[in-house]
Write a protein that binds this DNA or RNA. Structure first.
Lengths: 103, 103
DNA sequence: TCAATAGTTCAATTATATTGAACTATTGAA
DNA sequence: TTCAATAGTTCAATATAATTGAACTATTGA
């Protein structure tokens, strides 16, 4: 059984958040998630269809370990949710300010 | 003679800026520069004294190529300036929002 | 029971970061 | 004018991180 690692709010770091969002693919994943305002599977949130699923899995892990998303497994699919409130508690306004400029 | 590369405002990218600031050392360099509100040499802005100068030089190049600082040479020292207005023209408010959370 | 689905993990390759050593350009003093 | 000191850059080597195909795991539905 896979156990997902999620940092607590106080363990979310600024450089961790910036580093996680510094990749175009991950920025698009997060952009997709905030637009949908709902949980998404990894393949739903995938930034491009031709990406290896191991790479996609890697990107979700980076986002997860930076504290940006929370992942749970329901059946065979992952349910990924943006930790919007947690990030805003830690760094108020930061996420919106960054995503404002993400195409 | 060393020629420094500086992107034009429209070539500054969001992921470039985020990636440049995603490193604790570079974040401290930029934090130091905004506090001083003046140009600084590389060693003045150095985030810690025990860092190899080749590493420091590398970090300044990342910041430069991301469009965050402008470097000129005066005599034997570099004069590094934060491209505050340029970044604000490209991504209004972003830099302040990020630096607000940098210790 | 068994194939399909949605991912994870592993191993290999590739790319990026870090550092010491050698190099360059400028200054200031003898 | 020479020459050592200064402030970096560049290079080469190593260490760390990203990408991907292949094999694996767990769950569902026929």
């Amino acid at each position: 059984m896979v156990q997902f690692v999620h940092p607590s709010i106080e363990d979310i770091t600024l450089t961790g958040v910036l580093g996680a969002l510094a990749d175009p693919m991950r920025l698009r994943i997060v952009g997709n998630m905030i637009k949908k305002n709902d949980c998404m599977s990894c393949s739903e949130a995938a930034p491009c269809p031709n990406m290896a699923k191991s790479t996609l899995s890697h990107h979700f892990r980076i986002l997860r370990e930076a504290g940006i998303i929370r992942t749970g497994k329901v059946g065979v699919t992952n349910r990924n949710v943006l930790r919007y409130d947690d990030i805003n508690k830690r760094f108020p306004g930061l996420l919106d300010e960054i995503l404002k400029f993400a195409d």
